[in-house]
């Protein structure tokens, strides 16, 4: 267990560089405050396809290929693809990458999937099992609404605690050697169930898992929130973020303005009427790939703790009155340029 530090954290024997990232988003995300940062923006949420589900697979395929191309590599250079999404049986991902002809592990971590993919990808590389791993996660607002809530044309009001599923795909190429921001430590989250049953308040359902992950990480590494330039959770939204701040302050940690949430960053809640913020696998994936990654690469961010969060539920479990357990996966990523970190 040489690489394991503490209970839930591993320190990789050497940093695993992220060679490139790519992000593709739908029209609403393009209009948001991060719109300018994404690689591809599409006007039509169908992406020229026949159904929402086919649209998701289509932009998974395009965006994954784009990430590889941006790394200056060919798809055949990839040893593994690790990705996932929210659709039943992860069809968004597998139909998207089926023609790449690359060994594939399909992942499900609800909206934390990007964290799961990058964690496992970095471990595969550090273990010497792969030279290049393509990781990614996707979601589609319309497909998710259709599967988890109601048909889109139904006239309902969204409560103020609800979040808006991000349409898009984020992909990152991890490598054994090369230039790029490096994944150095990984803290893997446990499932935390605090008995939240309100499917319109996902932030509250996931906040305890994010708080538990942060506590475990600080415990394992001996660091504090102030040792990071940015701590970004996945899709807690405004309510979830507030709850994490409160939960952490009870344990004696002060989460200051360096702590943000991808779901808060990606939409303008007032103007875009997204209520508590963005959510979905793509929320953390595109925000990291489009917004944070270039800042890490430019050395503007020295050390970042990236924590995609997920709410583990299905329409069936929800209808059966089961609570919504949460999960969160943490990655410490160090920016380029010496002296930025440490």
């Amino acid at each position: 267990m040489g690489k394991k530090i503490g209970k839930q954290t591993v320190r990789l024997s050497k940093g695993v560089p992220i060679l490139s990232t790519a992000s593709t988003v739908g029209p609403k995300e393009a209009e948001g405050p991060l719109g300018a940062y994404f690689d591809k923006k599409v006007e039509d949420a169908l992406f020229g396809q026949d159904t929402w589900e086919q649209a998701e697979s289509f932009f998974v395929q395009e965006n994954m290929a784009l990430a590889v191309q941006k790394a200056g590599l060919k798809m055949k250079d990839m040893d593994y693809i690790l990705c996932g999404d929210l659709l039943n049986q992860c069809t968004g991902s597998c139909f998207g990458i089926k023609n790449f002809d690359i060994p594939y592990f399909g992942l499900f971590g609800a909206c934390s999937t990007m964290g799961e993919a990058m964690s496992l990808g970095a471990m595969l590389i550090d273990g010497g099992f792969a030279g290049h791993v393509l990781t990614g996660a996707s979601s589609h607002f319309c497909a998710a609404e259709k599967q988890f809530r109601f048909p889109l044309p139904l006239g309902t009001q969204r409560p103020p605690t609800s979040t808006w599923t991000v349409t898009g795909d984020g992909a990152a190429v991890l490598a054994g050697k090369g230039e790029g921001p490096e994944i150095v430590e990984i803290t893997t989250g446990k499932i935390v169930d605090m008995g939240v049953t309100d499917a319109n308040n996902m932030g509250a359902a996931m906040a305890p898992a994010a708080a538990a992950l942060l506590l475990a990480h600080f415990d394992d590494t001996g660091r504090t929130p102030q040792d990071y330039d940015v701590i970004a959770t996945g899709d807690l939204g405004t309510i979830g973020r507030e709850l994490v701040v409160e939960l952490l302050s009870k344990e004696g940690y002060e989460m200051d303005s360096r702590f943000t949430d991808c779901g808060i960053e990606i939409f303008d809640a007032e103007k875009q009427d997204t209520h508590a913020g963005g959510s979905g696998c793509a929320c953390s994936a595109v925000t990291f790939c489009g917004y944070f990654y270039p800042k890490l690469k430019a050395g503007e961010i020295g050390r970042m703790l990236f924590i995609p969060t997920g709410a583990l539920m299905s329409p069936t479990s929800s209808q059966q009155g089961q609570p919504i357990p949460g999960i969160a996966h943490g990655l410490v990523i160090e920016g380029c340029g010496k002296g930025a970190a440490k």
């Binding site: 605090m194 008995g195 308040n201 509250a204 939960l247």
Partner: peptide, 18 residues
Amino acid sequence: TTQKAQQEYDKMVKKASP
């Protein structure tokens, strides 16, 4: 995640949720 912790958390959520 004891019952007591869950009840306390439920109160926090109610307070934080508009």
